[in-house]
């Protein structure tokens, strides 16, 4: 099968987004009742959807190794918990993670394209991506060129994504919009449409370096773009809110939103991920509270 080359001219005109209306809609997702078995199932899904992340200048091989161990052993004191979906690291750390997780099904995601700013020559970005894939990355989290986007060079942004997707081949590509820098929901929607049509397998809110990151308003807007694309073409695109989701409650609200906008088909780590570094332990704590009826001290959950 030869994939058809995506064309910028095929990006549909993005509908406008009314911020006040979005805020109201999002508030409604937060009033659904999630408790008991429903909460346990939700928390388990959240755990299985996490991309456990470390993206720091001070990342070292040992830090990454330890995080990878945690990814596969979230809380061994309780049997039957899922593992996270993936670990997310810088390209230079991909070989370390690959080695550490060689016996598990956990995916290795690597950021690329001069993460987090994306301010590098196109060739550098391509090399960055190739390096990560050759080192064994299963998934690529690229950043869009926000500077170009805000300067109105939408075709440039589109072409960049399409080129990176070509390099990725069958590896799944997540496209980070860095919504905190796009500022308006109209822009978020437009960037989502560009990314989806350029070949993104996932669209992702943020790098985690800019605030605000994955607000529910932004995630809602991106989910609507995915919904519209699916209705138009029948093709599913994944969603990854990242940055700022550190509590179980917020994670569950996000799941409610996915459930009601995209439906249960998206309720798996194949189509929905959380990019987070500290979410897992809060979910584990809530999970154990559901199971045992008691809150345990944070010291009973490992920090890696």
């Amino acid at each position: 099968m030869t994939a058809q080359k995506p064309l910028f001219s095929q990006v549909p005109i993005s509908p406008c987004v009314d911020k006040v209306g979005v805020e109201e809609r999002v508030a409604r997702f937060q009033t659904r009742s999630i408790k008991g078995a429903s909460k346990l199932q939700g928390l388990s899904m959240v755990l299985s959807m996490i991309d456990l992340t470390t993206l720091e200048g001070k990342d070292t091989p040992n830090k990454v190794k330890q995080m990878c161990y945690k990814a596969a052993h979230l809380h061994d004191a309780y049997a039957g918990l899922p593992t996270v979906a993936a670990v997310c690291v810088y390209p230079s750390m991909v070989p370390i993670a690959k080695e550490a997780l060689k016996d598990s099904t956990i995916k290795i995601a690597s950021v690329s394209t001069a993460f987090p700013s994306g301010q590098a020559p196109f060739d550098v970005k391509k090399m960055d991506t190739k390096f990560a894939i050759e080192a064994g990355a299963d998934e690529i989290d690229m950043v869009i060129s926000r500077g170009k986007f805000l300067a109105g060079e939408h075709a440039f942004v589109f072409d960049e994504i399409a080129a990176i997707k070509e390099i990725c081949g069958t590896k799944r590509l997540k496209v980070i919009l860095e919504t905190g820098e796009l500022a308006t929901l109209d822009q978020v929607r437009h960037a989502s449409d560009i990314a989806i049509h350029a070949g993104a397998d996932f669209i992702k809110t943020s790098t985690g370096k800019i605030q605000p990151a994955a607000t529910m308003q932004v995630t809602y807007t991106m989910l609507m773009a995915i919904r519209d694309h699916f209705d138009r073409t029948g093709k599913m695109v994944g969603m990854k809110p990242a940055g700022g989701i550190s509590t179980s409650k917020l994670a569950l609200h996000n799941l409610v939103m996915v459930n009601e906008i995209l439906g249960e088909a998206w309720l798996s780590n194949e189509w929905f991920r959380f990019g987070a570094s500290s979410l897992a332990n809060d979910v584990l704590m809530q999970y154990m509270k559901q199971v045992t009826g008691k809150y345990q001290s944070a010291d009973y959950f490992t920090l890696d």
């Binding site: 999630i34 429903s38 909460k39 899904m45 899922p82 979906a85 799941l255 998206w266």
Partner: peptide, 15 residues
Amino acid sequence: MKTEDTNKWEYAPSL
């Protein structure tokens, strides 16, 4: 990685 065949998730009744 998917553990179940169905992802159906129902909310808890909350009277």
